[in-house]
Amino acid sequence: MDRAFRKLTHGLMLVGGLGIIVMMINITLDVVLKVFWNAPIQGTVEISSYYYMVAIVMLPMALVEYDDEQISVDLLFNHFPAWLKRTSLLITFIATAGILSVMTWRTGLDAVRAFKVGEVVMGSREIIVWPARCMLPLGFGLAAVAAVLRAVMLLQGKPVTKLHETDSAA
């Protein structure tokens, strides 16, 4: 379970990584073509914003959650006794899974709606954006699963944070 999920999230992260390289190449080519030949790549702004960026942000989200890379403050937490640390983490994981499920559900509905109307945006060209919308429920949803798995690992006594103190406490 752990290995399969890690593989999946890692794969999605790589797709996000591909997005970053393609975005860089696209922007660079657009500038070069614009400066030298007055022939920009139409749609660069829209595709960068709605596809590359959404991929870069959403696809690695599950891995970020799973690997404890989300940004949090552990100033107080570090001084908690072990039982309180475990309780805090459990509450955190459940709440995380909860709100991410809300986000998944609602952005999922949006994706369905966007698909039904064939959502496009109007830049200098019309760009279809509904496929990009699907990356939101995917990212939020898998991140919610990651939070649930972390809760399970916590209950099994496995390490769930990058902090050594917590690892020994848990």
């Binding site: 970053i20 914003s49 960026m53 959404v54 809300v102 952005t107 990009a132 939101l136």
Partner: peptide, 26 residues
């Protein structure tokens, strides 16, 4: 509340001027 969830993430991520952040990070 659902409306806020619906309206904000996609249009926030899809803001062209924010592409500079991952690019400069890279």
């Amino acid at each position: 509340a659902f409306g806020i969830v619906s309206a904000l993430p996609f249009s926030f991520i899809g803001d062209w001027s924010l592409t500079a952040i991952p690019m400069f990070l890279l």
